[in-house]
């Protein structure tokens, strides 16, 4: 798409603006965007994009912006407006509070909403701890069903031991 201002260069900057209740979408090339005084660092572009993008999507889904403004993260006090204006989040919990908005934003800026890759070491340990307990509990149920009470007692003690060790580690 060509720049809507100079009609010469390829448009690389897309700006959504709500002016007097009317949504306007502007497609500009880098040069014209600079002429319009727009900062072209990614964070600033992202912030502008977020502002327009969220206003647009919320008008569609809620019909009124007043509803959205009341949402605040209980943990850090960051509001929906803070998020919209800064493009940043206040704490890890904000990702839950603004979950639905983030799904839209992340889909657009990252092209995905599902993490693939590394997990923290502590989480790996947690996953393997939970897996081990689940496997033993399964063994315990089977031992009881098969009336192998000596095995069941041994497995029960083992689960207890692992749980206690897990609690100590935490």
């Amino acid at each position: 798409m060509l720049c809507q201002n100079c009609n010469e260069n390829q448009a690389t900057v897309f700006v959504h603006r709500i002016i007097n209740g009317q949504e306007r979408e502007l497609h500009l090339c880098e040069e014209c965007a600079k002429q319009f005084g727009m900062q072209l660092s990614f964070d600033e572009l992202f912030q502008g994009f977020l502002d327009g993008f969220l206003s647009h999507n919320h008008r569609q889904s809620f019909g009124s912006e007043n509803l959205i403004k009341t949402r605040v993260c209980d943990k850090c006090g960051f509001s929906y407006d803070d998020f919209k204006n800064s493009g940043k989040l206040g704490c890890g919990e904000c990702y839950k509070v603004f979950h639905d908005d983030l799904l839209l934003v992340l889909k657009n800026i990252q092209g995905s909403v599902k993490h693939i890759g590394k997990v923290p070491v502590k989480n790996i340990a947690k996953v393997s701890f939970e897996n081990k307990i689940a496997r033993l509990e399964n063994d315990l149920r089977r031992a009881i069903n098969e009336e192998k009470y000596e095995d069941a007692a041994r497995i029960r003690d083992e689960i207890k031991k692992i749980r206690e060790a897990g609690n100590l580690n935490e």
Binding site: F42, D43, F46, G87, K88, L89, C91, G92, Y95, K96, L102, V105, L106, I109, Q110, S112, V113, K114, H115, I116, G117, K118, V119, P120, V121, K122, N123, A125
Partner: peptide, 25 residues
């Protein structure tokens, strides 16, 4: 660090960051 302290991490969004442009990995 992550073996000794809890990171802000979400199974879906990965490592949680101040700006969503860094979230995930």
């Amino acid at each position: 660090i992550s073996s000794k302290i809890d990171y802000a991490f979400d199974d879906d969004f990965g490592f949680l960051t101040s700006c969503p442009t860094n979230v995930g990995t």
